[in-house]
Design a protein around this nucleic acid. Structure first.
Lengths: 200, 200
DNA sequence: GATCCATGTCAACCGTTGTTGACTAGGGCG
DNA sequence: CGCCCTAGTCAACAACGGTTGACATGGATC
């Protein structure tokens, strides 16, 4: 059940806990993941998990920050970013692997986790992404974030069937088209008004 | 605190519980909503709530079915549907009003609620919507459902700021454009292949 | 050797939750 | 009156959750 126990035991315990937390939170929701589950996965006592991180919420925040690294996807032109984002949705998560998107979407509805996630999504995703987009940039970035979260939830959490087939790439193409549209579509009235003052 | 108590008291108790459940589930997540909260809102004992509906999950299912009526939005041409969907996202929910979308998105991550919601989304939304779309219809409908869920969550649950301003209609226009794109965009290779055989 | 600190364990607390069984009030009915 | 059924209450259970404080251990330091 334990993979490569030698290596894992060699890691400082705190890192093992963090990794266990990432794994648990990416497989189950914030509510469904107990500190005892994480402790058992890391091979330590519950009390120690708590003492290491102060609270469940802080542990979640650290696990999130350590695992989800959107900056890696947000490099290059807006078009290459769009492709990277679309592809990320299909990062297959095995029992051992951790899909960073899952850590986000599985806990979206818990108030404690939501505080952490809002901060993270705004500062580490929407903000950076917006720098690559046309005005209204923050709005476009937020809509794209919502789209990705929605696909992630319906696909990875709810397992809605039409979204599960990666065959033929139809889904990926559809998603890519949608993201691209949101990036570039005009939001002003059809007639090309003066592109000067837009408040965002 | 109680609005129009005369009318509410006149309703059969079971309906009052159902209404209280809808209200609670649209304001808080499945996990955060206790049967005692619903009972208190309806003015009855917890035990009675449970005996009326058998379990929390069944109560949730009934409250969902009674409140969320996507069929009302899915009439007319695909374009008018797109507009109705985009508008539904901005149905303002006051403390008294219930936004049907919230009941869905607030509980997406709880496993018990997820069972109920998957069934509901597939059968009452994706299915009907797909009948109005081009092939691959189910895939397009599912992507649109994911998009709406994503906006609903980031806007109504996480309160992501750029999504909150309804001013100017920029957001609604962006959303409408995205939905329309998903409805009509081609999913085959760019060069206009023979539009004949597409498998979905 | 004695002291100190980090690392960790053990047992328990306290609140909450869905759920259950025993009980009560009241109205229809024979 | 006596009976029964529905509607509804009350108290409690059993489990679980995050959290806490007291205690063990082992190496480093003086």
């Amino acid at each position: 059940m334990r993979r490569t126990p030698a290596i894992k035991q060699a890691l400082p315990t705190r890192d093992r806990i963090l990794e266990a937390a990432s794994r648990c939170f990416s497989k189950h929701s914030y509510d469904a993941t107990g500190l005892r589950d994480i402790a058992a996965d890391a091979g330590v006592d519950v009390a120690y998990v708590h003492r290491c991180f102060g609270s469940k919420e802080r542990l979640f925040a650290q696990a999130l920050a350590a695992t989800a690294r959107p900056d890696r996807l947000l490099t290059g032109s807006s078009d290459s970013v769009a492709q990277a984002l679309a592809k990320q949705l299909f990062a297959h998560d095995t029992d051992e692997d951790i899909n960073p998107l899952d850590i986000i979407v599985r806990s979206l509805t818990n108030p404690d986790a939501a505080r952490v996630l809002r901060e993270f999504i705004v500062q580490d995703f929407i903000g950076p992404l917006a720098t690559k987009l046309e005005q209204p940039a923050l709005l476009r970035a937020a809509v794209i974030a919502a789209f990705l979260a929605g696909i992630g939830i319906l696909r990875n959490v709810l397992s809605i069937k039409p979204l599960l087939e990666t065959e033929g790439g139809q889904l990926e193409k559809l998603i890519l088209g949608t993201i691209t549209t949101t990036m570039h579509a005009t939001t002003t009235s059809e007639r090309g008004k003066a592109p000067g003052k837009r408040r965002q």
